[in-house]
């Protein structure tokens, strides 16, 4: 899957949680500035897993998230890319 396609998918999922049009989410936006709450975050992760058929290692009790960096659009895209690549290895 191309990076652009993953990025579009990630932005679409965040947009749905934030009730925003995807065009209003910049490709370098951070999750903090978008204002996603904790329940929105776990819903977005669920949507990522369903959309890309991956398992995202994410625990809401680990603020620094060593296994999956959910802090910005680029970090989420990179994480999804890595998980897709791991699956096809």
């Amino acid at each position: 899957m191309e990076r652009a396609e993953i990025e579009a998918g990630v932005i679409a999922i965040l947009a749905q949680q934030l009730l925003l049009p995807p065009s209003e989410i910049a490709s370098d936006a951070t999750v903090a500035e978008l204002g996603l709450d904790s329940l929105g975050k776990v819903e977005a992760i669920f949507a990522l897993e369903e959309r890309f058929d991956i398992h995202v290692p994410f625990n809401a009790n680990e603020p620094d998230q060593p296994d999956f960096d959910f802090s910005s659009v680029p970090s989420i895209v990179a994480g999804v890319e890595r998980l897709i690549a791991q699956q096809t290895e």
């Binding site: 776990v42 992760i45 669920f46 994410f58 625990n59 809401a60 009790n61 680990e62």
Partner: peptide, 20 residues
């Protein structure tokens, strides 16, 4: 599981390094 609040290893209330 879906809420991402369960710990995979142990329950460690009030401890640094707790995972849920």
């Amino acid at each position: 599981e879906g809420l991402r609040v369960l710990a995979p290893d142990a329950c460690r209330p009030f401890s640094l390094g707790r995972k849920g």
